[in-house]
Nucleic acid binder design. Structure first.
Lengths: 209, 209
DNA sequence: CAGAAAATGCCACTGAGTGGCGTTAGCTGT
DNA sequence: ACAGCTAACGCCACTCAGTGGCATTTTCTG
């Protein structure tokens, strides 16, 4: 990301890519996703529409760059993590470390991205698909590990639960305007994970306190 | 659904809607979702493209008719269900009863729909969005109930877990070609729900048996 | 500095989805 | 049975996302 000693060609490509994500987030936020055409976007960055589609598979994807950065890092952490105790805790840690590894300004971009998701069905759908793909990928990587079973329903479910906790944390944090920055998001994440044991044990009798 | 004593106009509308879903499922399965144009579909049913979009908001939605039927029924069951013991069990029952309420032939249509989801990203994304919407709706309805808190993280998570179990059951059942019909699907659902306590308690040490 | 390789720009095209409007078909009163 | 009403439909023109092809420019390599 911050490597300045890449081949010149790739540096240029990375710069246009970043310019596109920044302009897209700004335009989508100002005018709305549906009311911003790709022509407006590529005009603002001064590239051709063809170049846009060499960098992003769809209009939705450029709005979700912050998400893909996180998920990509998360999968690296899943590969690297050691599972000593509860698998659920290992995933909580992987999420926490992934958040810590995000670069300066990611929090603000992520917040803007989530705001777009909340009001634009198409972006929301793409975002959910990324979540699901990440879940599948994490499951596949864990299943290939020594000591784990690639068919284990329990493994699949625990990953789904971890991602659900993450999604709830992100949604709640975003809904309140992202208080406390990434540290605030970490807090929500801890709260959500802490609530998991109580949630599966929740009964009609103890629901109201 | 089976009410033959509707106004003639609405009966006609329902018939074209059904003709569209059937033809769509057939064409999409035969030629693939991406390689079937809407013009081909509406020609086969002999309606105008305009009429198609008065019945379905998008091309993806006509492929997901089986899903929407289930989710709509499920939300009715959520409203009607009584929560005596575990909330998780209540949702498992609601899912089971919803499946039982599906009409003849739904199982086959659902199987075809899931096969489409597996190979077509756009359909998959829409399907995930329906899941999520249903989760949100179920949460909102439960939160409005006496004895429940509309802000309770535990309630939100337990619904996410239930839907995750459902999704895994459906995916596993579909992946094996839908053995045993809807009864087979019910079995997978029971298995998935039964694995939930073990999954959150899963550790690196007991993962391999 | 020459030639390969990659990235870009331009152009024409397909296909999803929308708005407008005239026409048809089913529903209402008398 | 007939006239008026309204919902649904068909047709047409249009916008915009996304793709394939090809010529051109730009960077890397020897």
């Amino acid at each position: 990301m911050d490597l300045r000693e890449l081949p010149l060609r790739e540096r240029k490509k990375a710069r246009t890519r970043q310019a596109l994500t920044e302009a897209a987030l700004r335009l989508f936020t100002e005018k709305g996703f549906d009311h911003t055409t790709l022509d407006e976007l590529v005009d603002a960055v001064e590239v051709s529409k063809r170049t846009f589609f060499r960098n992003f598979p769809s209009k939705e994807d450029v709005a979700l760059a912050a998400d893909t950065e996180l998920w990509s890092t998360f999968l690296d952490e899943v590969d690297a993590m050691e599972v000593a105790g509860l698998v659920l805790d290992a995933f909580r840690t992987a999420l926490r470390v992934s958040l810590e590894r995000m670069d300066e300004g990611w929090g603000a971009r992520f917040l803007a991205t989530r705001a777009l998701c909340a009001v634009t069905p198409a972006v929301q759908a793409h975002s959910l698909r990324y979540c699901d793909q990440t879940t599948q990928a994490a499951f596949a990587r864990m299943g290939a590990r020594a000591g784990f079973d690639a068919e284990d329903v329990r493994l699949k479910l625990v990953i789904e639960v971890a991602i659900a906790a993450w999604r709830h944390a992100a949604l709640s944090w975003t809904g309140d305007g992202g208080p406390g920055g990434l540290a605030g998001l970490q807090e929500r994440l801890d709260t959500a994970f802490a609530a998991i044991p109580d949630s599966v044990a929740l009964t009609g009798a103890n629901a109201d306190r």
